[in-house]
């Protein structure tokens, strides 16, 4: 019962997100909009109920289960990659390595800079 009440809150925020997506015409999924709205609502309320925390933890722990069917589909459309394979693989491997490196380097530089700045303040 407790988890169900939390789940209902999540579903309501998803439906609200879908409503905003359709009514405002944003190219962003209802789930992400719902997530943003849920976070802001919690910030305004200043606390999170146990039932909502329990429901969200439950769903997050099976996140991998939920994305698996979509990933299975990739093996059945592999023939569509034909002819593009080299460019696609090189772009993904090198591109991802470079962007991961850039993200980490930027965050490291900026956080140490901030920590140093905080000490001076």
């Amino acid at each position: 019962m407790v988890v169900l009440r939390g789940f209902l809150v999540l579903v309501v925020f998803f439906l609200l997100g879908e409503a905003v997506r359709v009514l405002v015409g944003l190219p962003i999924s209802g789930g992400v909009l719902g997530m943003v709205m849920a976070t802001f609502t919690l910030m305004l309320r200043g606390r999170v109920t146990d039932e909502l925390a329990a429901a969200s933890q439950g769903l997050i722990s099976v996140l991998v289960l939920l994305i698996t069917p979509g990933v299975v589909g990739v093996f059945f459309i592999a023939d569509q990659f034909a002819g593009h394979w080299t460019a696609v693989v090189v772009a993904l491997v090198l591109g991802t390595l470079m962007s991961v490196f850039t993200t980490l380097l930027l965050m490291k530089k900026l956080t140490t800079e901030q920590a140093r700045g905080d000490q001076h303040d």
């Binding site: 998803f14 997530m35 996140l63």
Partner: peptide
């Protein structure tokens, strides 16, 4: 859908 919304809770 709801699982994406659920990510907002650890975020908060």
């Amino acid at each position: 859908g709801p699982a994406t919304v659920a990510l907002g809770i650890p975020l908060y």
